[in-house]
Design a protein around this nucleic acid. Sequence first.
DNA 1: GTTCCGCATGAATCGATAG
DNA 2: ACTATCGATTCATGCGGAA
Lengths: 285, 285
Amino acid sequence: MEIDTKIVLGDCYKRLKELEDNSIDLIFTSPPYADQRKNTYGGIHPDKYVEWFLPISKELLRVLKPTGTFVLNIKERVVDGERHTYVIELILEMRKQGWLWTEEFIWHKKNCYPGKWPNRFRDSWERLIQFNKSKHFNMFQESVMVPTGEWAKTRLKRLSDTDKIRDESKVGSGFGKNISNWVNRDYAYPTNVLHTATECANKNHSAAFPEALPSWFIKLFTQEEDWVLDPFLGSGTTCKAAQKLMRNSIGIELQRSYYEMALKDVEPRIMALCEETEEDEKYRI
Amino acid sequence: MEIDTKIVLGDCYKRLKELEDNSIDLIFTSPPYADQRKNTYGGIHPDKYVEWFLPISKELLRVLKPTGTFVLNIKERVVDGERHTYVIELILEMRKQGWLWTEEFIWHKKNCYPGKWPNRFRDSWERLIQFNKSKHFNMFQESVMVPTGEWAKTRLKRLSDTDKIRDESKVGSGFGKNISNWVNRDYAYPTNVLHTATECANKNHSAAFPEALPSWFIKLFTQEEDWVLDPFLGSGTTCKAAQKLMRNSIGIELQRSYYEMALKDVEPRIMALCEETEEDEKYRI
DNA sequence: GTTCCGCATGAATCGATAG
DNA sequence: ACTATCGATTCATGCGGAA
């Protein structure tokens, strides 16, 4: 199987024009937050954010397949002691464009940014807003199933005595393939709240999200050889995740420094066999 | 110390009229969700929800002290495959009334309603929207600090097996509970994400939210002898919590059956000492 | 007195069927 | 076509009874 990973330098509004109608299966992106990252994106003023984003979302609507999904990672910032309303206004305006506001996932960032303020606590969650073009979109729920409570309660306790002793190292290092082979069925569907620790790796990119985040949505909403798009690629996390999962991807990035950073981490074109190895098995969530 | 706990039967819009201006320190409530609880509240249609709630929120704004806080527990339902927009529209309209949208807490319900659908996962979170009348509101952050260090050990024991298994299994793909978050400090400030299960089966009165929820906000936004208001009291959880914490409270409930249920659990007027027991400690979120 | 197992029960949603 | 009702689906939790 051969997949393509395109990293594009340029303004996303202009470069999106070059993409064909109905050609993308999943758009996953984290646009620059309002009035933040001033040095990189010029700092869109919160009051102008909706106005700035709507032309882009219109292009995104055009390039997305009818069965595709758009996942927008965003959080409103605090302005003058209040949560600014640009995110919820954006939802209302995008619906007028024709987007369906299907769902809102919560990303709970366990190790969120430290700090203390007299009138608010640390902000440890962000919105992952799911938009669709039609009600009949692709969703592959089985690909993100998690072990059930039942499995945790019964199976683990039962095998804890003998098996822990038999293979202590594997247990200690986090339940490897040992147990995942044991029980194939005891998996449950997840909910709309995701938990991850934020990655410290991409220090240079101020809005970096952990690779597990795009990976989760890529597995959920696409199949191998589908097309993934991130119009605000940043340091390249989305394309990296797509490539590992054998999805084609396009990433657009305005800043040359990020663009080059993304290029470094991604093989522009790769060839690979399409066989699930035992190694892959272990990485199933 | 003597505190008052008033349980009032009647339509909250009318009964709110009887309350004085600037007399309440905290409003905590969970109004009937749109088209839900039809048998008890008649079910407000999602399209009419904002229109229905605005006159009430106007009265709430009147009775709240300038230093007070209004915490609204709500979640939009799915209508025709989409998340309905009445909640975010309500935020915009309440701002026009003069409310400040200060913050939005997430209540992560661990035991959310089961079910499976082709196009969405189970909904395991609700909004706890914080509104204020002015930027200078009371907030007692120390009262809800979370023990760390020694406490972390007991917390770890209490982690459900489900949590342990799921988090361990996610390690390979980048997810994971970072135990090292519990650092050496004895107490840490919480974040704006709350975790608790809904109180469910086998109780004479099943509360929509667990008592820990109003308790947390009562401790955070009020002091002893302050006034707490719940205009949609339901089975009385908010007043019960207020009473235990030595806060005066007023609860308004339309349904006679709920009203009587609330009356039963609450001593209309009590005298008590002001000591936090070990039992209370356990209820800290 | 513990621990363990079984079971009922939720602020739900979809799709089909009926009026 | 549009609304109303109903069955099927699904899982964490806490209680009660049993070992």
